[in-house]
Write a protein that binds this DNA or RNA. Structure first.
Lengths: 115, 115
DNA sequence: TCATCATATAAGAATATGCTTATATACGCA
DNA sequence: TGCGTATATAAGCATATTCTTATATGATGA
């Protein structure tokens, strides 16, 4: 008998609500394959630093991302230990890669990081 | 070579935003296995008829559900022809069944429909 | 045709969301 | 120690969301 993993509907709707924003969803898709810091997101989304910071805070609040300071930068990554990581992952893997964003950053010399 | 189905990030975030509400998400999970009419939802969610109607309208607007009038009732069901149905389905199938809601309705004699 | 039931729509109010600008904090380096 | 860079937080504002109440529409059946 196969046990299908399920997620409580309240928690699921909370997660979907957070992912239901193009900026945050793209962030999550990017973080699926790349660690990024705030200033990189600022470039990628062409959005103000506080706006980016506030989006990241929401993702941090429900612990779907984690942060790690390295020198003056804070790198974000997906929290693979999150109870609902399989659910999140199943969504993200259906989204197209966002490699152009990263490539553009690198072309501009703005990747890894924030010179 | 396996072609993974992907969905545009803008469309995905729009869908996730709509599913990111506990009422609408539960509706969709219910509709996955049962056709329902408005008055049934009113009972299930213990919510006003206009509130239910407005939630359904949002789901209808992006065509993830369809409606069919039968007599005085309008039955809703999931639109399996929707371009993004696989995406939606992949989310819904991770959610627990909502059979208790239906069972409760039937116990009250309020199912199929609205006597 | 009229009354009733199921549903939709409109308008308004309370709250939530997502920016903005200004400022605070934390680190690295001279 | 003091300055510059990276990031966070606070306050305010515009807009979006989700109810509410009131009313309109559409079908049924006497």
């Amino acid at each position: 008998m196969i046990e299908t993993v399920t997620i409580d509907i309240q928690r699921a709707s909370q997660l979907l609500k957070l992912l239901g924003d193009p900026t945050r969803l793209t962030m999550m898709r990017l973080l699926k394959t790349h660690e990024c810091c705030v200033c990189e997101f600022v470039e990628i989304f062409n959005m103000s630093q506080p706006a980016i910071s506030q989006h990241l805070r929401k993702l941090k609040d429900i612990k779907v991302v984690k942060e790690e300071r390295r020198g003056q930068w804070i790198f974000f990554s997906i929290n693979k230990s999150h109870e609902d990581y399989p659910f999140i992952q199943s969504i993200l893997e259906q989204l197209p890669e966002q490699n152009e964003s990263i490539a553009r950053l690198e072309a501009q010399g703005l990747r890894v990081c924030c010179k």
